[in-house]
Design a protein around this nucleic acid. Sequence first.
DNA 1: CATTCTATTAGGGAAATCCCTTACCCTGCC
DNA 2: GGCAGGGTAAGGGATTTCCCTAATAGAATG
Lengths: 233, 233
Amino acid sequence: MAVIDLSKRDAPANDLRQFLDTVCDTHELDYAAYAGVNPIAQTVHGFVNYPDEWQQLYVDQNFQHRDPTLLAASRSIAPVDWKRLHREESFDTIFHAAHDFGISKQGLTIPVRGPYGDIGLFSVTRDCSEREWQLLKSSILSELQAAAVHLHDHVVQSHDMVRRLTHPALSQRETDVLQWIAAGKTQQDVGDILAISSRTVEVHLRSSRTKLGALTTAQAVGRAISLGLIHPG
Amino acid sequence: MAVIDLSKRDAPANDLRQFLDTVCDTHELDYAAYAGVNPIAQTVHGFVNYPDEWQQLYVDQNFQHRDPTLLAASRSIAPVDWKRLHREESFDTIFHAAHDFGISKQGLTIPVRGPYGDIGLFSVTRDCSEREWQLLKSSILSELQAAAVHLHDHVVQSHDMVRRLTHPALSQRETDVLQWIAAGKTQQDVGDILAISSRTVEVHLRSSRTKLGALTTAQAVGRAISLGLIHPG
DNA sequence: CATTCTATTAGGGAAATCCCTTACCCTGCC
DNA sequence: GGCAGGGTAAGGGATTTCCCTAATAGAATG
């Protein structure tokens, strides 16, 4: 098994980048990429070994917000073969450009989730015939999945992402209020239930929205549910 | 939290039970177990190939609430070797009892998370020397991780199907609107995005609420997310 | 011990949502 | 054909939410 134990190293970006290279070398892959999604800050941190020019374009164009491989994988449990996305319009938009940099349309993305809503997305590509790709995939998929878990675990352990997420911390009152709102109560209802003014309820809601990075209460409810902070009512 | 034995309810569970047996046979393991945690319904769905008597005791004693292997794994990204838990008091409490049924203290639990807060916990055990265990573990870990993902994906897929069948579908427009609302847009924003009046957006929202049995849009968003009809924004 | 930060409480006024109603176009059923 | 039902679209007016401001208490920091 060709998994480097990153946890035994001081590993900022260089080691992660090197880990991607090692994965590619040992598994006959062209490129590998890791993207860590922080759902609260709405940020994506990535490490890739794609050509610098493609990397630059990708970032400049904000592709991470509409990359169908990332979107599909972030909604899936199992690995997503990009073949499933070939029909989608947005796929062509991005991979037509990627092709100019020698990046294949053949690849897959493996999602890994942590306990605080954090998502790691590990992608690899390989330019070859479809039959070769299927053979390669089936022979290395489980090792890639293990590598993805390893990678995401390591990034979350070392990155400050975890510190914000492990203290996701809605206060008791904020959780109470949001839970009742998710249960379909109005602010006035919640005020009556909790024996406080509806204006106070609104303040708790506002600070909940701020902490969750949500623009509206509806978004905050959705996010809190997906983070396991409250339950759907 | 109730434990539901899938093997006595759903038909496909027999396949899953058989899958556990296969994993044990091909990887020289004693026992395997899967527990699916549904944070919304507050239930644990499990199937195992442990001895029936142990299963019975486990359920009767509500061990799922304090089983340290499940607790540790549900907070971890990477697989948890039970060795790490041997010091804990709660571990002895349960595994002293388990030992009477021929279940080893040597094992590991692999967590897998889905996009809606759902967690799958896949555990395997093997009674052997520690050195043998380490060797076995390193040789099959990645395959076990892949198996865990496969299991959880399979379980969630079949449950989703059930939920989708018993719940009314939202129309395309309703889904569009609700998805944008969940992404933090206002009704006016959504109207601009979809090139319709904000009043029309409101009508779609209202019929979404009606169909989902929700009193407010926030509740509808929460419910739609938990039903997998839209994604958290 | 002063200071800063967060949690909790709340009011006035602007902004957005929500309810009721109308309208048109489909699709399916008697 | 006629008609019921659902999807889509929209306006007027009542209700609710949201933003700004502000006070108090307790915990953490220096």
